[in-house]
């Protein structure tokens, strides 16, 4: 696989939350505003990048039997570091993301990439993979958050452009998260189905 492909596969084709259905909890919980989504995406990307880097470096040292506990310790360390940094330098973000920062530890994306990619591949590939998956996750968070914030709060990144009397409150509340994510996912799948069908038709025609 080419380096570019390793990086970009997480953006759309193997998008962790919209296609692989991983890391659903943060995708639903923190997407009440675009700012939160960016913060959460950045924190997760950092953890993915660093844990992939360290795990690919240590992959020959760590015995197979204890690899999961080792991965968990490494991931938890970086999550705690991110948590402390956010508390120290972006306190407002730490307040709005709350418990979901420490919960990056149990985000299936991070452990999943460590297990499926970083423990089998070289350092550079692992960094690219972590970065790509992190960016893909961030993109999907922003997508969901943008829809919810515009419809539910009438604003984008905190900038209000629809007066609050005309907002559809349900979209920032819990049910809205499920509905928006469901419809975005359905749309993504529909597009992918269309594209593959077209390709098939073309191939048939060429034959």
């Amino acid at each position: 696989m080419s380096k570019v492909k390793i990086l970009t596969k997480g953006f759309f084709k193997e998008n962790p939350s919209l296609i692989l259905v991983l890391g659903m909890c943060p995708t639903l919980a923190v997407t009440t505003s675009v700012n939160n989504a960016i913060g959460m995406g950045a924190a997760t990307t950092f953890v993915l990048l660093m844990s992939n880097l360290i795990i690919s470096l240590l992959k020959n040292v760590i015995p197979d039997k204890v690899r999961i506990p080792c991965f968990i310790v490494i991931i938890a360390t970086f999550v705690s570091i991110v948590d402390l940094i956010i508390q120290g330098f972006v306190p407002a973000l730490s307040e709005s993301l709350g418990v979901f920062i420490p919960l990056i530890v149990v985000n299936c994306i991070v452990l999943g990439r460590a297990e499926a990619f970083a423990s089998k591949n070289g350092v550079i590939d692992s960094i690219l993979d972590g970065l790509g998956m992190g960016i893909g996750f961030t993109i999907s968070l922003i997508l969901v958050a943008a829809v919810r914030e515009i419809l539910g709060a009438g604003s984008f990144m905190g900038f209000q452009f629809i007066p609050s009397d005309y907002n559809i409150l349900i979209f920032v509340l819990a049910p809205g998260a499920f509905l928006v994510l469901g419809f975005i996912m359905a749309l993504m799948r529909h597009i992918i189905n269309r594209v593959t069908e077209k390709r098939k038709n073309k191939m048939c025609a060429a034959k």
Binding site: P69, C70, I74
Partner: peptide, 9 residues
């Protein structure tokens, strides 16, 4: 290995 990693962490 496990102890070392935990210690460094």
């Amino acid at each position: 290995v496990l102890t070392a990693i935990a210690l460094v962490a």
